[in-house]
Simulated scan of single mutants.
Amino acid sequence: MSRRLRFVSLTPDQQRILNEAYQYGEKRALRRRAHAILLNHKGHTINQIRDIIGVRRDTVSTWLSQWEAEGIEGLQDKPREGRPHLLSESDLAVLEQLVEKYPHQLPVLHAKFQEQTGNVVSQDTLRRALKKRL
Rank of each mutant, 00 (worst) to 15 (best):
Q116A: 11
F7K: 03
R4S: 11
K132R: 05
T62I: 13
D58E: 11
N40E: 01
P107I: 07
I52H: 05
I49R: 05
R6D: 13
A34R: 04
I52D: 09
A21I: 00
L130A: 05
D51P: 11
V120P: 13
G74N: 04
R33N: 06
A29L: 12
V55K: 01
D91E: 14
A93Y: 05
G82A: 02
S65G: 08
R6G: 11
D91M: 09
S61I: 13
G71K: 03
I72W: 05
S9Y: 02
G25P: 02
T59M: 07
E68S: 09
Q116M: 11
H35F: 03
D124T: 15
V60I: 10
S61Y: 12
G74C: 01
G118I: 12
Q76E: 12
R80I: 10
G54L: 15
R127V: 09
Y22N: 10
L75N: 13
W67F: 07
N19L: 05
T125G: 10
A93C: 10
L87D: 12
L39E: 05
G43C: 04
V120C: 04
T11V: 01
A69Q: 06
N47G: 13
L38V: 02
Q23C: 03
E26D: 13
R127E: 08
L98A: 08
R33G: 14
T59G: 13
L106I: 09
R133K: 08
P79C: 04
E68V: 03
G71N: 03
R32A: 15
G118K: 01
S88Y: 06
V121F: 12
E89L: 15
G82E: 03
Y22E: 09
K112I: 06
R83G: 12
E73G: 14
H35N: 06
E68L: 02
I52P: 00
Q14V: 00
I49Y: 02
T11Y: 00
K42S: 11
K27E: 10
R32C: 09
H41M: 04
R32G: 07
T125C: 04
L5T: 10
R80Q: 02
K112C: 13
E68H: 13
D51C: 06
Y102G: 09
K132M: 15
R16C: 09
Q116V: 11
K132T: 07
R33F: 03
R50A: 08
A111L: 14
N40G: 00
M1Q: 08
F7D: 01
S122N: 15
E26V: 13
K112Y: 12
L5Y: 06
N47W: 13
I53K: 09
W67E: 02
P103S: 07
L109T: 10
S122P: 14
Y102M: 06
Q76S: 14
Q116I: 12
S88M: 10
E70R: 08
P107L: 12
G74A: 03
A21W: 00
R32E: 08
I53E: 08
F113V: 06
E89N: 08
R127H: 15
Q66G: 12
A36G: 06
R33C: 05
A129Y: 07
L10K: 01
E20R: 07
Q114T: 10
F113L: 10
T117M: 02
Y24R: 05
I49L: 03
H85S: 12
S88H: 14
L126A: 14
N119A: 13
Q116S: 07
Q76K: 08
A93F: 11
E100M: 06
D13I: 11
P12F: 03
L10G: 00
N40T: 00
